[in-house]
Amino acid sequence: MSILINKETSVLVQGITGKEGSFHTLKCLEYGTKIAAGVTPFKGGSLFNDSIPVFNTVAEAKSNIKIDATVIFVPAVFASSSVIEAIESEIPLIVCITEGIPTIDMMNVKSALRGSSSVMIGPNCPGIITANECKIGIMPGFIHKKGKIAVLSRSGTLTYEAVNQLTKAGLGETTCIGIGGDPIIGSSFLTFLKMFEGDPETEGVVLIGEIGGTQEEEASEYVKNYMKKPVVGFIAGKTAPEGKRMGHAGAIISGGKGTASEKLKVMKENRIHIAENPSVIAETMIKALR
């Protein structure tokens, strides 16, 4: 068990022939992901890597091949259209890697998601991986090892930092999800916490947040009221100045709101075990599991 994806998941790649798309498709294939098809407009009928059929549209791909999930490597200018295309084609899981999508476009995507059956991860994220089974994204596969901890994060390399520690500590991972660093994202921490609480293989969850927005606070409330599994939390950006976007479009303290100290306070009050610095994430989890 794991959540959302496993070794049977049949994956579509939107933007499969582009620079990023083709590079990471090969890396996902190496990991063992079942890449079933690709989409690039006007390249329909060709084969990627001599084996994977390319279609012009998502609908065309879906009518020919069973698709469980899609990953989007389309440039920001066209990315929201690609996401909406996937939603309207009723693809169950949509992972959008693209960085730099305008916020108003993402607002329209969220409207399209309401009332649809699709779950969206991202944008501006590393993707999702179930250790030793299926990788849909750009994270380094080799640091992951099948185990019992789930990781949820708004960041990329900071997630790898946590995963690396969990693997080295012998805890290993179930499913790890980078939810994205933008102000508006497909799904928040809350969506996945609920799934992990229900996943028999997951014994604990690492939650890596950062400054900006109120997702961590909402997640904390859920942890306190509904979660039996321990949650270890870390927040990046204690030293970030107000009003500056710290790399991620969503990582900004505005009007005194969204600070790390505010988030840490709420998390502590809601029974989340805080890792004081990123080097002690695995250590904190080991203590929390006792």
Binding site: S153, R154, S155, G156, T157, L158, T159, E161, G181, I208, E210, I211, F234, A236, G237, K238, T239, A240, K244, M246, G247, H248, A251, A260, E276, N277, P278, S279
Partner: peptide, 26 residues
């Protein structure tokens, strides 16, 4: 640092050990 989240976390950890970061750089 590579990555925005790790860059912020690096700044925070420097502060934790009693020094102060001169910048954020991804």
């Amino acid at each position: 640092v590579n990555g925005a989240g790790l860059a912020m976390a690096t700044m925070d950890t420097i502060k934790e050990f009693g020094a102060a970061p001169a910048n954020f750089l991804d």
